[in-house]
Design a protein around this nucleic acid. Structure first.
Length: 641
DNA sequence: GTGTTGAGTATTTTT
DNA sequence: TACTCAACAC
C-alpha cells in the first residue's frame, strides 16, 4: 500500500489520506480523479481498517461504478462488500428494503422511464380534460421532474404556484400523475431519489441506521448533482461528516437536467471546515490540447480558478478543416481516420467523433458504410427503449404484478388478439366505475356489456396466458420466463413471419434473453424484479463494447469521462455548437462553452476540429458561420488544412 | 378492429 | 429528413 501511495502526486496523495472530515477535490479533466477515489477507498480499508460495508461511493454511471469497484478490488486483491453505485441504484437498494414505511408503496415497485411517463401524463390530460396543445406532455414531464428535484410534492407545488391559473392546472396534473404512478406500483427516476429523501426525513430511525452504516461517503461528479441528491448526501453525511466530493465545475454540462453547479461552488460554505484540494496536473493530453481547453474555458465567469498543465510535452498542432457541407465533412473525417489507421497502424478504437446533436451522426454513419469502415454509435436510443424490448418488459411487469394498468394495456393486444380500442374503453370504464384494476376488469369481462363474443374469448385466452406465465415465473429464472413469454404469447412467431425489420426485432429479443442470462450469471438475485430494475437503470454507454474494433461516435455529453488518442469535434458552427438556444442567455452559453471544454479534453494526442460551410439539418439547408469557440482557441495552436 | 395518411416537430439524456 | 401519433377510412 505504501508503494501504491508513491504512485500518486502530492495533491492526489493528500486527497487520499485526508479521510476524516469534509473534503472537496477540484479535479480538472484528466487529472486522475478516479485514481484518487479508488486509492482513497483502498486506503480506508487497508490502512484505516474501515469496514468496507461502512463505505458509500456514488458515481453517475453504472459503467463508472463497475470500473471503480473493479479497480478497488484489484488494489486490495479481493472482493468487498462496499456500496459503489449510482445514486439511483443505491436509492433503489434502500427503497427495496424500506419503502413500505412510506404510505402506499410496495417493495416490488417497478421503474417508469420517460416513455411510460409520457403515457401516464397523456392519461392524466384526458381525464382532466386538458388539451395537449396547452399542456404539452413533454413540458409537463419536465415541470414535474423539476418539482421533484426541488423536493416539491404536488401539495407543495399547489401551495406555491396554485394562484397562477395555468400552474394550478399543472399542479392538478402532477397530483393525478403521482396517484397513477402509485396505482401502477411504479416510481419514476426522480421518485427513486425523492422518495429516499422523504423516507429519511420522515423516519429518523431509518436515517440514523444509514448514517451509522455509511461512515465514509464519496461522491464523484459532484458538479452534476441536483438539489435532491444534494439533500440526500447531506442527510447521510450529517452525523459523521466524512464526506468527500470530487468534481470539476468546468465540466458541469447537465444544468438543463436540474444539476446545480452551486452545489460544488458552495461546498465550502456548507462545510466551512472543508479541506480543498485542486488537481491541476493532467496526465491525459498534450500541452497544445490543454492550452486550447484552458483558453476556451477562461472565457467563462464565476468559476473556481484552475489551470491544467502537463509534462506530456507540446504534442501536435490542432487541425481545423472547413468542409463544404456535412458530406464533405464526413468524407474528410473518415478519410483521415482511414489514412491514420493504415499509415500509422492505429487501432480504430483510438478514434472518437464527437458532435453536439445525435442527428449529426447520420452523414458520418453513411460515409463509414460507403467506405466499409467499422464504427460504433453510442446513444440515440437505448436497447431497452426499442419497441419490441419494451413489449417483452411489459409482459414481465404484468407477470410480476398484474395490477400495473399501463403495462397490461400495452400488451393486451400485442401480438394482435382482436382486443381493440372499443373493448379496452369498455374495460377501462368498468374498472373506473368499480374501483378495480384493469386486470380485475379482465376477469369480469363476461359481466361487462358492450364487449363482443369474440373479444370475450380473446380476453379469456389472454388471462389464461398470463396465469400460465405467472406460474412459470414462480420457479424459473428471468431468462426462461422471457423465453416462455415469446413462445406462448405468439410474439416471436408473429415476428418470424415478418419482413427484414421484424427479423431484426426477433434478434433483439433473443439478445434480451442473453442479457437476462448474463444478468443471472453476475447476480445471485435472479428474480424478475431484479432483472427489470437492472434494465431500467441501464444506459446506452453502459453497454459500450470495447472488444469490437471500430470508430466511436457519440454526443459530447456521452463522451464525458472518456478519453481517446484521436478526437474529432465536428459541426463547429454558430447555432449548432453553440446551439441557437444558448444565444440569448449568458449562462446557457457558458454551459455550451463547458461542453466545448469537455470535448477538447477528451483528446490525448491529436485533436481535429471541423465545420461545414453549408449544412442540411432536418431537411432544410442553410449557410453557416464558424463557431465562436474556434475563435476562442489561440490561432498559433491551430493548423488549417 | 385494423390499416393508412398527414400534420406537427425536432438539443443535450450519467438514471 | 424522418419519425410519431391522432384522426379518418375501410
Amino acid at each position: 500500500m505504501n508503494n501504491l501511495l508513491d504512485s500518486l502526486n502530492k495533491q492526489q496523495r493528500e486527497a487520499v489520506v485526508h479521510t476524516e472530515g469534509p473534503l472537496l477535490v477540484l479535479a480538472g479533466a484528466g487529472s486522475g480523479k478516479t485514481r484518487v477515489l479508488t486509492y482513497r477507498i483502498a486506503y480506508l480499508i487497508n490502512e484505516k481498517n474501515v469496514y468496507p460495508s461502512n463505505i458509500l461511493a456514488i458515481t453517475f454511471t453504472n459503467k463508472a461504478a463497475r470500473e471503480m469497484k473493479e479497480r478497488v478490488e484489484n488494489l486490495l486483491e479481493g472482493s468487498y462488500d462496499m456500496w459503489i453505485s449510482t445514486f439511483h441504484s443505491a436509492c433503489v437498494r434502500i427503497l427495496r428494503m424500506e419503502i413500505e414505511k412510506l404510505q402506499g408503496y410496495k417493495k416490488n415497485f417497478i421503474i417508469f422511464d420517460t416513455d411510460d411517463q409520457a403515457k401516464i401524463i397523456k392519461e392524466c390530460l384526458k381525464e382532466l380534460n386538458y388539451n395537449e396543445k396547452n399542456f404539452p406532455p413533454k413540458e409537463m414531464i419536465s415541470s414535474i421532474s423539476k418539482a421533484k428535484d426541488q423536493l416539491m410534492t404536488p401539495g407543495k407545488f399547489m401551495d406555491r404556484y396554485g394562484r397562477d391559473f395555468r400552474l394550478k392546472k399543472v399542479a392538478d396534473i402532477y397530483s393525478l400523475y403521482q396517484k397513477k404512478l402509485m396505482e401502477n406500483n411504479a416510481l419514476d427516476f426522480d421518485d427513486i431519489l425523492f422518495k429516499t429523501v422523504e423516507l429519511f426525513q420522515n423516519n429518523p430511525d431509518a436515517l440514523q441506521r444509514y448514517q451509522q452504516k455509511f461512515k465514509y461517503i464519496m461522491v464523484d461528479e459532484y458538479q452534476d448533482t441536483n438539489y435532491c441528491q444534494y439533500m440526500l448526501i447531506n442527510l447521510l453525511a450529517k452525523s459523521h461528516r466524512n464526506l468527500c466530493v470530487v468534481g470539476d465545475d468546468d465540466q458541469s454540462i447537465y444544468s438543463w437536467r436540474g444539476a446545480d453547479i452551486g452545489n460544488i461552488l458552495n461546498f465550502e460554505k456548507d462545510f466551512p471546515d472543508a479541506k480543498v484540494i485542486k488537481l491541476e496536473q493532467n496526465y491525459r493530453s498534450t500541452q497544445t490540447i490543454l492550452d486550447a481547453a484552458n483558453s476556451v474555458i477562461s472565457k467563462n465567469f464565476g468559476r473556481k480558478s484552475k489551470r491544467l498543465w502537463t509534462d506530456n510535452g507540446e504534442g501536435k498542432a490542432i487541425i481545423y478543416y472547413k468542409a463544404m457541407d456535412e458530406r464533405d465533412e464526413a468524407d474528410f473525417i473518415i478519410g483521415e481516420i482511414d489514412r491514420l489507421a493504415f499509415q500509422e497502424q492505429i487501432s480504430l478504437n483510438s478514434f472518437a467523433i464527437l458532435y453536439r446533436t445525435n442527428a449529426q451522426s447520420r452523414a458520418l454513419e453513411e460515409m463509414c458504410m460507403a467506405r466499409g469502415v467499422p464504427y460504433k454509435i453510442v446513444g440515440g436510443h437505448r436497447f431497452y427503449d426499442r419497441m419490441e424490448v419494451k413489449d417483452i418488459i411489459a409482459y414481465l411487469r404484468v407477470i410480476q404484478d398484474p395490477e400495473g394498468d399501463l403495462s397490461i394495456k400495452r400488451i393486451i393486444n400485442v401480438p394482435k388478439r382482436g382486443i381493440g380500442k372499443a373493448t379496452i374503453d369498455q374495460l377501462e370504464d368498468y374498472a373506473r366505475q368499480n374501483g378495480v384494476s384493469f386486470y380485475e376488469a379482465l376477469l369480469f369481462a363476461d359481466n361487462i356489456d358492450g364487449i363482443s363474443k369474440k373479444a370475450r374469448n380473446s380476453i379469456k385466452d389472454f388471462v389464461r396466458l398470463i396465469a400460465e406465465l405467472m406460474d412459470i415465473a414462480e420457479n424459473e429464472s428471468a431468462s426462461e420466463v422471457i423465453n416462455q413469454v415469446i413462445l406462448k404469447s405468439g410474439y416471436l412467431e408473429e415476428l418470424e413471419k415478418g419482413d427484414d425489420e421484424a427479423q431484426e426485432r426477433a434478434r433483439n429479443i433473443k439478445e434480451l434473453i442473453s442479457a437476462a442470462l448474463e444478468y443471472e450469471e453476475k447476480n445471485e438475485d435472479n428474480s424478475l424484479t431484479g432483472f427489470l430494475e437492472n434494465m431500467a437503470l441501464m444506459s446506452d454507454i453502459d453497454g459500450l463494447k470495447e472488444d469490437r474494433e471500430g470508430i466511436t461516435m457519440m454526443t459530447i455529453h456521452s463522451a464525458k469521462g472518456l478519453e481517446f488518442p484521436v478526437v474529432f469535434i465536428c459541426g463547429l458552427e454558430e447555432g449548432l455548437f453553440p446551439t441557437q438556444r444558448a444565444f440569448f442567455e449568458e449562462h446557457q452559453l457558458e454551459e455550451e462553452r463547458r461542453l466545448m471544454y469537455v470535448a477538447v479534453t477528451r483528446a490525448k494526442e491529436k485533436l481535429y476540429l471541423t465545420s461545414a460551410f453549408e449544412r442540411t439539418l432536418y431537411g432544410s439547408t442553410s449557410y453557416t458561420m464558424e463557431s465562436r469557440f474556434l475563435r476562442e482557441i489561440p490561432k498559433d495552436l491551430i493548423m488549417k488544412v
